[in-house]
Design a protein around this nucleic acid. Structure first.
Lengths: 113, 113
DNA sequence: GTAGCCAACATAGTTAACCTAGTTAGCTTG
DNA sequence: CAAGCTAACTAGGTTAACTATGTTGGCTAC
């Protein structure tokens, strides 16, 4: 599940879960799958899942309760209606373009400092 | 250094560093002590120091540069803990700004290679 | 029937080890 | 002298193991 892009795995998982919360797939108050489940689902180690959950916890999107689970915060509102998937894909494409151009500039700079 | 309160060590260290940034003891652009130094100073393991730095990095207060160090961001404007409704427009504005700056760099490189 | 114990599962924190990769200073060699 | 190598440092990512602690459900003993 976790792809071998430059982005580290624990951020990929955090991104995915964050997107599920923003899209409403995970509604406020709903529990996330347990860390072991998430590790199986994303085919990642338990450690990276715990890191990913820690990121979301740090962002205040979720709240962990020892012994029970990790729950989506009530105030975590889903994405606004104008947030269409088309815009998201366009943003991703722009980011991809910027990354590639920046990589070329960086390599050119390292060749001729 | 890390006290045995209920607050976990990596958050105590993050709090302390954040306070140093906020108070001006660590000015923008200034490097934090290396992780090994911080581990010695706070008498903590390297792991908790890395967690603490990761928290600040996630908050946008510092930027880590592999091989060099971790530096206080010039515009210490932390990311909003909660997704605002116009987050998409803000992202688009950021992308626009990045595109323009990158275009200038590219043209400067092509003019003077 | 119920009170209490216990096993299973949950998050959370900590530590240690290993790997990748970038930077820098200094030395060595051609 | 200059190019290049090397060693020592840096951050970052991943994994595994251990501990602590809270929750839950089922079983047992009375």
């Amino acid at each position: 599940m976790v792809k071998n892009t430059g982005r580290p795995g624990y951020l990929q998982i955090a991104d995915d879960l964050r997107e599920q919360i923003r899209s409403g797939a995970l509604t406020p108050g709903a529990p996330l799958p347990s860390t072991t489940r998430l590790a199986e689902r994303y085919e990642a180690s338990l450690s990276v899942v715990k890191l990913a959950v820690g990121v979301l916890r740090n962002e205040g999107l979720v709240i962990g309760q020892q012994g029970k689970g990790v729950f989506v915060r009530e105030s975590a509102a889903p994405a606004p209606p104008e947030a269409s998937s088309d815009e998201l894909t366009e943003i991703r494409a722009t980011l991809q373009d910027l990354s590639e151009r920046l990589a070329r500039v960086e390599s050119a700079l390292s060749d001729r400092p």
